[in-house]
Design a protein around this nucleic acid. Sequence first.
DNA 1: GACTGCATGTAACGAGTTACATGATTGG
DNA 2: CCAATCATGTAACTCGTTACATGCAGTC
Lengths: 208, 208
Amino acid sequence: MSLRHALLALLEAEPMSGYSLARFFEQSVAYVWHAPHSQIYPELRRMHEAGLISGRSEARGTHATKTIYTLTKEGRAELARWVEEVTPSQRERDAGYLKASYLEYASFASARKQFEAHRAHHEEQRRRWEAHVRNLENRDTDLLRIRLAQNAELADAVVAYKVHVYHGLIDRAKHEVRWATAGLKLVDELEAGFRAGKKAAPRKRRTG
Amino acid sequence: MSLRHALLALLEAEPMSGYSLARFFEQSVAYVWHAPHSQIYPELRRMHEAGLISGRSEARGTHATKTIYTLTKEGRAELARWVEEVTPSQRERDAGYLKASYLEYASFASARKQFEAHRAHHEEQRRRWEAHVRNLENRDTDLLRIRLAQNAELADAVVAYKVHVYHGLIDRAKHEVRWATAGLKLVDELEAGFRAGKKAAPRKRRTG
DNA sequence: GACTGCATGTAACGAGTTACATGATTGG
DNA sequence: CCAATCATGTAACTCGTTACATGCAGTC
């Protein structure tokens, strides 16, 4: 239940409403674990039912109200339990690599497009993460300021683990870019081989 | 719908029963896309209803029967459509990295255990993929033999794309091992800093 | 005749996606 | 007063996990 624990971790920094939670989520954990608001609201309700968070109503403008959620003792304990526990690794499930292993069914043009899209995606991710890690290193994100103000003792660890994570993601993105680039080269080679084979032996098909 | 297309790709090589499909799946695509048999059987039923595969009964022993599934024209077309199409990348969702970014809540001992487990997992994955890629390079897997016998013209591409995928996975696993190793070093440094800080200024807590 | 592996499923639940829906506030 | 954006959800659906269930076939 990663979503639940990500939310607990955010609320540990500061009590907030569902909406600001969703906004902070988008600016921090979503870089590692994406979740839309349609998943966050019901999860908050379930966490409330489970006693992990408590909610209090607060005025919003003149007519409306919003609920501010706060970690309970149980919520704090659950967060602690989760970080202590070793979670078994996720099973492999990579749609891009899966399709790449069957690209022999695709045209060369389409195979190229796939590798190009893969490369573009990971270049973009890399840029995003690099920008984010700079903010972390400068201790210049809203959440970080709140957390560091509260806990000067842990400040180094708070920043260091996150920086380590983002460096890991950046390296991974670089790897994906290299992989996609090598894939493009492979397509070129296969196409060259295919053309050469066709010219040399136009009907070399045999099933022996 | 990656599962569906992975199954189509397997059936393209040879008609088979749900069980042998599940076995071949486990020995090939599962390295990239895991799925248990409890997901495969119902998906086959749905694919049959959708007209992508056809089934014929065959004797199994003296009393029982099994269903052998074959790709239909529609199934073949759907497979072709899928490989041609550029699938948007999956949203980021990595439970290990998520937890790693909140390891400041964990004990140093537990943080170490997590990185060690991460490293062990990816070392094991790497070994599995390396063994598999050797078989691919030697063209020595059951499925490959079937597919290469059918289509000598595409043989190079069939092997080359898969080898490219597994090399990518192996490099990625190496990256994860390096990342976890660096994580262990980081824990050591943080712990050393923590001890030093404690000795030098046993109650340096401040919230300014 | 008991055990192991082959073979095929169902059921209940939890997680995630996409689309829809509604109303309040704030700034121009 | 109109648009943007704040704010909070629901609904329907698909996908994936875990556990349970059943019976045949070959072999020791």
